[in-house]
């Protein structure tokens, strides 16, 4: 493993969300602020989760306890983040040039990107730092590869969850509202099980399958339909 390796995994994991950032967010200052705010809220969730981790001493080494707590806190803070944006909505509307309903979906998408990016960085940064070499993980030579893939799955899912969750709250759509925390909890807890089966391939397949489903759902929630998608291919 070399610096090249770290670069390869870095590109693979963070290339897509960074591309999204530059294409869709970078040109709008208020959206950048919104995104950073989303990242901040995710970090707050992490902070509270770590407080729980510190306080509950006997369960420090039990991911089966800390993991669900962390997921619940992340979803709570996603909701708080929505509440905050709702309060600031009229201000955001003033600075935004887009006055359509699409604007709200875009805010949700930008927030999700913030959540996803920061979650990915915290998840993967220390793996990436040791991936620069020279050794590789003994017990599982695909440790870093699996880490990179899972991180990418989580980043994509966070973006979709942002869009779907906000759309659900906006329109009181309970299906959307519950789909997000349940799927989050599900995929997280599923990762605990690959310990036993030692089959990361299944986990990753399911993760990417979930990505496809939630990307589709997010597009749908944001107002895309099969017939409107045709416009994608028009010049």
């Amino acid at each position: 493993m070399t610096v090249l390796t770290a670069f390869a995994y870095g590109i693979y994991t963070f290339g897509p969300p960074v591309a999204l950032f530059f294409v869709t967010v970078a040109r709008h200052p208020h959206e950048i602020i919104t995104m950073i705010l989303g990242a901040f809220f995710w970090l707050l969730a992490l902070l509270f989760a770590s407080l729980v981790w510190i306080i509950v001493i006997p369960l420090k080494d039990t991911p089966a306890f800390t993991l669900p707590i962390s997921v619940i806190l992340q979803e709570v803070f996603r909701w708080l983040y929505f509440k905050l944006l709702k309060k600031a909505d009229h201000l955001l509307e003033i600075v935004s040039e887009d006055k359509s309903d699409l604007r709200k979906h875009k805010i949700a998408y930008v927030g999700g990107l913030g959540f996803g990016l920061i979650a990915g960085i915290v998840m993967f940064a220390n793996v990436l730092s040791v991936a620069s070499g020279p050794g590789t993980v003994r017990s599982n030579q695909y440790f870093v590869t699996v880490s990179a893939f899972s991180t990418q799955v989580m980043i994509i899912l966070h973006i979709c969850w942002g869009v779907i969750f906000f759309a659900g709250l906006e329109s009181k759509n309970w299906l959307y509202i519950f789909a997000v925390p349940i799927s989050h909890m599900f995929i997280s807890c599923l990762s605990l099980l690959i310990n036993l089966a030692n089959t990361p391939a299944y986990f990753l397949s399911f993760g990417y399958f979930l990505c496809v489903v939630f990307v589709a759902l997010a597009f749908f929630a944001a107002g895309a339909r099969p017939k409107t998608l045709v416009d994608f291919f028009k010049r």
């Binding site: 770590s50 220390n126 989580m154 990762s191």
Partner: peptide
């Protein structure tokens, strides 16, 4: 070391048993 680990590897700790640091997983 294990504090940042628990959360940064929320999903990945489970790949192998025990909460070793990534460094320990690589180097002896």
């Amino acid at each position: 070391l294990s504090f940042p680990l628990t959360f940064s590897l929320l999903f990945l700790v489970s790949l192998t048993a025990g909460l070793e640091t990534v460094y320990q997983k690589i180097y002896t």
